[in-house]
Amino acid sequence: MDEMEFIKSYDAYADAIFRHCYFRLYDREEAKDAVQETFLRAWKYSKDNRIDNVRALLYKIARNIVADKWRKKKTLSLDLLLEQGFEPSDGEHKKIMLNAEAKNFIKLLNNLDDNEREIVIMRYVDGLGPDEIAKIMSERAGRIGEAFSANVVSVRLNRAINKIQKLIQ
């Protein structure tokens, strides 16, 4: 991947990666840091490896980074976030208060464990299909031979959704 292609993939996917990281870390600055680190690692990877699917690679790297950050992030600023509402994109306008549904969604998400939350976010926030999610999750650093098929993804997704629906009732 040359620099031109790299810049193109940044322009195409930076927002999506940011969004994914934001919904998992609840912290704008951390999410931005994760985006930066994701693209830098992708660049390094591209120096020695051919890349077939840039988007999948970016999500794979982002997942690892989020996992690292998550393990270090002991205080969840979730309550604070819900009180103050989301920061709008440029921080210049008044803060947008979350509507009730969105608040509920986030609170519910918080009841899932990180793996479940990750799949729900990839499916419903990132809009990735089960096939793509399976590809992204199938090569986890350190774990060799863990096979992820679209079926496995769908099963886990349904379990997570059921969990959420039980909580609503």
Partner: peptide, 15 residues
């Protein structure tokens, strides 16, 4: 969900 969450993005300046 996507209708709401898609609004979360980097500002032009941040990007």
């Amino acid at each position: 969900i996507k209708e709401f969450t898609d609004g979360v993005r980097l500002s032009g300046q941040e990007k």
